[in-house]
């Protein structure tokens, strides 16, 4: 985490998103019963949301106050790759597609496709090896979850 401690590319936009989300949560907490009784259901959520807003404001103020480095700023396209890479976006989408597929195609088919594609893309040792690894993983999952844990799979 060290390399990302303070001046991580995109920190300020991220803080702004967090600030906006915190304000939405504060508003939602206020909607519970406004400024009602102190022992009411809305008081504590409002305090927690207000704490979030204050913390993120202090982080934003500090981020803006920090002097910018003397070296030239790299172009925007080069600042983000380490944080949000295309393969990462692709992989998150693959995970979401996997969960959707679970509902449609069932556990075994969806998991087989998900694992095979993931192994092929991430491990990069060819489709045949990915297929073998998938088969081995699914046998393992079947033995552990159906026999040992006896759980209901999606």
């Amino acid at each position: 985490m060290n390399e990302f401690q303070s001046r991580v590319p995109g920190a300020i936009p991220f803080y702004v998103v967090l600030l906006a989300s915190s304000c939405v949560l504060l508003w939602e907490a206020w909607r519970i019963e406004g400024f009602g009784a102190l022992s009411g259901p809305g008081t504590f959520p409002m305090i927690a949301a207000a704490v979030m807003v204050l913390c993120i404001l202090s982080l934003l103020v500090r981020a803006f106050a920090r002097p910018r480095g003397t070296e030239e700023k790299p172009p925007l396209t080069e600042r983000f790759p380490k944080i949000v890479t295309l393969p990462m976006i692709g992989y998150v989408l693959l995970c979401a597609a996997y969960v959707l597929a679970l509902e449609i195609a069932g556990f075994w088919i969806a998991s087989a496709v998900f694992l095979c594609v993931s192994f092929a893309v991430l491990h990069q040792k060819g489709l045949l090896k990915a297929a073998i690894a998938t088969a081995a993983s699914l046998v393992f999952v079947y033995i552990v979850f159906r026999f040992i844990f006896q759980i209901y799979l999606p």
Partner: peptide, 11 residues
């Protein structure tokens, strides 16, 4: 490892 962790997390 990563795909297996995701699979275990989903299940």
């Amino acid at each position: 490892l990563i795909p297996l962790v995701i699979l275990l997390s989903v299940v």
